[in-house]
């Protein structure tokens, strides 16, 4: 018979996830712990989550703690997910960015929860399609994620048949992918446009450098409000006055930070608000 998860064990697991990744697990989400950590229990030959929590309380368990965080992180991703943010990026954000950055300059785009790389590579394909417009400007795409396994897949740029059919138009498949049976691999020229690295959004963002455009979609929903505020304000500090932030459709900055303001008529797209003293009165520099 399975022993129910004790309050102490729950506190250990939920505490580890919150402090290390920002992920909030309530009592109503115990089933998530049970389903996502089952492979770790098997591998470690542990009878249940109580035993796992007990093990995590001992010294020298850093690799196990990392595996728990990896397993609990949602890695759902697909190409051109939700479509609209990518349409906005292609038709509005990119032309505007190029107009504001003279030829010969560099810009940077951050895919802040890159998972297995589909978002970063979707942006890279849009840039490849816009080569004539971009000219000799350099645009760097940086994909980061806390989970290592999906990041390794992102670097490989290899996807299953199922994955290349989720959101990816067939013309893009023909143009930018090669069949490497049974999978599909994104071509080297696109892979080279994006770099991927392990990074915790709760960490110090400054070493990552400045970003003109940030995609941080469907991540904040897993954080509590103070963590959302902290992450968003740290992001704003890494962005120029005309910087743009894309959040997921169910996410918002309203009531969380005044360092970003929604672009009128654009769901999920936010401009940086620059002057802290005048935040309430200022529209983002991007408007108008």
């Amino acid at each position: 018979m399975t022993i129910p998860l004790s309050a102490t064990a729950f506190a250990t697991l939920a505490g580890l996830l919150k402090t290390r990744s920002g992920l909030i697990i309530g009592q109503d989400k115990v089933y998530l712990l049970e389903t996502r950590l089952v492979s770790i229990l098997r591998r470690e030959k542990l009878p249940d989550l109580n035993a796992l929590a007990d093990r995590l309380g001992r010294p020298g368990v850093e690799p196990l703690a990392r595996d728990v965080i990896d397993a609990m992180t949602t890695n759902e991703s697909f190409f051109f997910r939700d479509d609209k943010p990518f349409q906005h990026f292609r038709l509005q954000a990119l032309p505007r960015l190029l107009a504001a950055r003279p030829p010969g300059t560099s810009s940077r785009i951050w895919s802040a929860a890159a998972s297995s790389g589909q978002e970063a590579y979707s942006l890279a394909m849009i840039l490849a399609e816009s080569k004539a417009l971009i000219g000799d400007r350099k645009i760097e795409i940086v994909g980061t994620d806390i989970a290592r396994e999906p990041l390794a897949r992102a670097k490989e740029g290899q996807y299953t048949q199922f994955e290349v059919q989720r959101g990816l138009p067939v013309q893009m498949l023909m143009k930018y992918f090669k069949k490497e049976d049974p999978n599909w691999r994104i071509e080297a020229a696109i892979r080279q446009m994006a770099q991927f690295r392990e990074f915790n959004l709760l960490g110090d963002l400054r070493p990552l450098g400045r970003f003109d455009i940030v995609f941080c979609r469907n991540v904040l929903i897993y954080f509590d409000q103070p963590t959302k505020t902290r992450v968003l304000e740290a992001m704003a500090a890494q962005m120029p006055p005309d910087g743009l932030l894309y959040l997921g459709g169910a996410e918002t900055v309203l009531g969380i930070t005044s360092r970003f303001a929604p672009l009128p008529g654009e769901r999920g797209v936010y401009g940086v608000v620059t002057a802290p003293a005048e935040r309430q009165a200022l529209a983002p520099a991007w408007v108008g």
Partner: peptide, 22 residues
């Protein structure tokens, strides 16, 4: 589910291509 068939379909006038299972 190979590129030859996909290209043949699109050049012959198909608009999209789904590889089974779907």
């Amino acid at each position: 589910n190979d590129m030859t068939h996909i290209e043949m379909a699109i050049t012959s006038g198909a608009r999209e291509y789904i590889m089974k299972p779907f």
